[in-house]
């Protein structure tokens, strides 16, 4: 903080001891314990055996969510009570910024995987490249192209003629999600999704401009529109998945194309959902709680950064998953 010296020092608020962290831990650990149980029952378990994994998981999630709720509430109350110095607020800003950075890196892993299978592993499986790895011998009837509409396994005659032991079976889709496979451009959901999400980024920004001028009405209106657009996006995404599963035969089992498609769009969709919820909460705070002023609206700002981040990720998704 510029010009700060010991004399004009604003006290940095260090909270008293708090049980929030321990409650959050309890919730989190119970959730992952339950989730592991659920998945293991699914994959390794005996279907007739009754387990309580679901109850543990749901209880843990509930507990976790409740803790987070009261955590944020506490933080907001402290702010309203005027405990937070400018310096402390900057800590929150930094926290949010680096949190978003870590999310970027999470997506980076999946984009990296996509890049790798499309540009390296795929062609190798198709028999390209020499000196390093070559596969003419292993998958002679497999030709690589993207979107991968036939897995190497299928090219070789399916799961009954396993080249590699214990592999499970991978059945490809018959229609891909790319533009070329769409019935008509207005049937192509990704396009609509892009429009919706890009618009929502703009509306979110308008809301921001509103609150900066202290115009609460404008803020509420445009924030409301943003949240609505977010909901539409999530709805369209669900439709798209429905279509993929039921009409295109594209599933998580559809080889690497399905894997990368669902993981990238799925995690993105999940983030949209999170961002939308965050914005919704800000809307409720503004409308019902009568919070936020031209200078005090960090909760909204943080959520809006998140929203823009989710938007940027979508642009890359649109480019690399749907178009290229």
């Amino acid at each position: 903080m510029t010009g700060q010296t010991s004399t004009e020092y604003e006290k940095y608020y260090v909270p008293e001891k708090s049980r929030l962290a321990l409650c959050a831990t309890t919730g989190l650990i119970l959730s992952i314990y339950g989730a592991s149980g659920i998945m293991n029952d699914m994959t390794f378990g005996d279907p007739d055996e009754a387990t309580n994994s679901w109850s543990i998981f749901l209880f843990g999630m509930f507990f976790f969510a409740a803790t987070l709720f009261s955590w944020f509430r506490t933080a907001i109350k402290e702010n309203i009570a005027g405990l937070n110095s400018a310096q402390l607020k900057k800590s929150y800003v930094l926290g949010m910024f680096w949190f978003i950075f870590s999310e970027v890196m999470f997506f980076f892993a999946f984009f990296g995987a996509l890049f790798y299978v499309r540009n390296l592993a795929g062609p190798w499986l198709g028999g390209e490249g020499d000196g390093g790895r070559m596969n003419g011998l292993l998958w002679p009837s497999f030709d690589f192209s993207w979107p991968m509409m036939q897995t190497p396994q299928e090219a070789m005659g399916g799961a009954t003629t396993q080249l590699i032991a214990n592999n499970g079976s991978f059945t490809s889709a018959h229609t891909s999600m790319s533009f070329a496979d769409a019935h008509a451009w207005w049937h192509w959901l990704p396009l609509w999704n892009t429009l919706v999400l890009l618009t929502s980024s703009v509306t979110c920004h308008i809301a921001h401009l509103g609150i900066l001028k202290g115009d609460k009405k404008k803020f509420n209106l445009w924030l409301g529109i943003t949240v609505a657009l977010g909901m539409i996006f999530v709805y369209l995404q669900i439709m798209e998945y429905y279509e993929a599963y039921n009409e295109f035969g594209l599933t998580l089992n559809s080889g690497i194309y399905g894997s990368t498609f669902f993981m990238l769009t799925g995690f993105h969709g999940f983030h949209v959902f999170m961002g939308m919820t965050m914005l919704l909460i800000q809307l409720l705070r503004s409308v019902i709680g009568k919070q936020f002023t031209a200078t005090e609206h960090f909760g909204f700002e943080a959520s809006s950064w998140y929203w823009h981040f989710v938007d940027v990720v979508w642009v890359f998704l649109f480019l690399f998953v749907y178009i290229l």
Binding site: Y116, N253, F262, M263
Partner: peptide, 11 residues
């Protein structure tokens, strides 16, 4: 999924 399985196109 088949991120790490060649049979599905992964590696």
């Amino acid at each position: 999924t088949s991120f790490f399985s060649a049979a599905g196109g992964g590696d």
